[in-house]
């Protein structure tokens, strides 16, 4: 396999050299001709990713994705995946994504996707996550050309880079770039509506066991930081667990709760007088938003939804 990639690469380089020589030799005269050749060459897509370089002979049609954020990305590009590792629970998709999504086959858990189902779909592109799937890269490569992105640990900016790679891999690089510009504009507009963002804002996933802050090393936290909010936690970790005392100490001026279950630890905390001492509580700036939108989908659609939620709750009225 490795040999094969090498051979393909050297072949590509040599043919590119020859083409450019021909083009130089006949400059002016045969411009139309070289254009055509160039188009043919553009059929092949070459992607550099976390575990090497993958060459696709043509634009892939049957795509399998192993993370939620990749589905988010494909939806913005009007590409339908045939298989998704969705933890066998379609309810985990955010509504905006689910609306656009056609029928697909579930590949099972994101941590241990079902390789048998995956191979039976006979995809021509697999998009995998570095952290979860590096151990099965060889098997995936045996099924179809595979690109591996560092998504699970990515912050907002890394996600944007990954987005362009995905767009390129599915043969929609131009559309991807355009969509990214549109995205940046939307975020910019949201910033305008927000006005002053000089305050500390804390997003946190909550469940009955604990309160897990998302610091600016995490995806959600880094997005808030990119808008201009301050991270009150200042932690080395991406998802530090906070006790009520610690939360009071960090004293965020606004809190976005992302409950993972119906009842969470915050229900208990609300009865505690300490809770009333937090700035966000005093000024009525504790909001509850969808965890699916804020922490699971992790793409352009979801970050635009996040911006919307923030403007709705914190924007100048």
């Amino acid at each position: 396999m490795h040999q094969w990639i090498k051979r393909m690469l050297s072949f590509a380089v040599i043919s590119a050299l020859i083409l450019s020589l021909i083009a130089c030799g006949n400059s002016g005269k045969n411009e139309a001709k070289t254009e055509v050749q160039k188009n043919n060459k553009e059929e092949a897509i070459e992607i550099e990713h976390a575990l090497g370089t993958t060459v696709l002979d043509k634009r892939p049609e049957k795509i399998v994705v192993l993370e939620f954020s990749y589905t988010d990305a494909l939806m913005t590009l009007d590409v339908q995946p045939i298989g998704i590792a969705d933890d066998d629970n379609p309810d985990l998709f955010m509504d905006d994504v689910k609306e656009k999504l056609n029928d697909y086959t579930s590949i099972g858990s994101r941590y241990e996707p079902n390789i048998e189902i995956l191979s039976s779909l006979q995809p021509d592109l697999i998009i995998a996550d570095l952290n979860h799937h590096k151990a099965i890269y060889d098997q995936l490569k045996g099924i179809a050309p595979t690109i591996v992105l560092d998504d699970h640990q990515a912050d907002y900016n890394q996600m944007l880079d990954n987005y362009l790679l995905i767009a390129k891999a599915v043969g929609k690089e131009a559309e991807g770039k355009a969509r990214l510009e549109e995205h940046k504009q939307k975020i910019e507009e949201a910033k305008q509506k927000l006005g002053d963002t000089d305050m500390t804002v804390l997003p946190a996933v909550t469940n009955p066991e604990g309160f897990f802050a998302h610091s600016d090393h995490s995806y959600t936290g880094s997005f808030l930081a990119s808008i201009g909010f301050d991270d009150p936690v200042k932690s080395e970790d991406s998802y530090p667990e906070l006790s009520l005392e610690q939360l009071v100490e960090t004293n965020p001026q606004a809190i976005f709760l992302l409950p993972a279950t119906e009842n969470t630890i915050v229900d208990e905390w609300k009865k505690n007088p300490l809770w009333q001492g937090i700035d966000a509580v005093k000024t009525n700036k504790v909001f509850t938003v969808e965890r699916r939108d804020w922490a699971l989908s992790r793409g352009l659609i979801s970050s635009e939804k996040m911006a919307e939620d923030i403007v709705e709750n914190l924007g100048e009225k």
Binding site: D87, D88, I107, N114, I117
Partner: peptide, 9 residues
């Protein structure tokens, strides 16, 4: 383990 909760295991 492979067959009882397809597609998971």
């Amino acid at each position: 383990g492979r067959v009882i909760i397809i597609p998971r295991e």
